[in-house]
Nucleic acid binder design. Structure first.
Lengths: 87, 87
DNA sequence: AATCTATTTAGAAGATCTTCAAAATACCTG
DNA sequence: CAGGTATTTTGAAGATCTTCTAAATAGATT
């Protein structure tokens, strides 16, 4: 955990798009990759950063690795931000 | 504007600390710098990034440049994040 | 005008980030 | 076990980030 890693993870447009894709439910790494014009290696790199930031978690099933949103960290970030508005 | 710039700005611990300092009210660049063990040039660099992300705005007065929080962008970020939680 | 104070800009060094191609791993299926 | 599919890891290139020192700018004061 740590806000540096979380905000850094959120700072990349590809990673934000991945998070938006995952709103509808879990997706495999390949399904995620098919939405982008990048190699699977690069997608894997981005997923690793999202995972390290705890913004997603993975579940392995058969030959696939599924990724899923972790909304609890999103809550934490919003809590941090909220201290910046009102007191 | 743009979430990339905003999240990138938020990803650095020094810049987050600066934003927290500004909760209590505006501060000059020098006053901000006095809270950190870094050169004024580095603080100026960080302030520039916060400014470009619209997280702060400056007002010049006498010899000083005062920095102030811009909470409206914080709201926008929270709005973006909120689409990640609920449906 | 000369100088002092506050702050920024420029340039450079070293660290970190993003991307790819190629190789490695993991698991499934025949 | 051999081969196939899904994904990650490695290593490298080029871009961007953070920090400093030194120099430049802006405004106030003498």
């Amino acid at each position: 955990m740590g806000f540096a890693e979380t905000f850094k993870a959120l700072s990349d447009p590809v990673r934000r798009e991945i998070l938006l894709l995952l709103r509808k439910g879990r997706l495999s790494a390949g399904e995620i990759g098919s939405h982008f014009d990048m190699t699977g290696a690069t997608i894997s790199y981005h997923l690793g950063i999202l995972k390290k930031a705890d913004l997603v978690f993975e579940t392995r099933e058969k030959n696939f690795i599924y990724y899923e949103l972790n909304t609890s960290v999103v809550e934490e970030v919003m809590l941090w931000l909220s201290q910046l508005r009102g007191e």
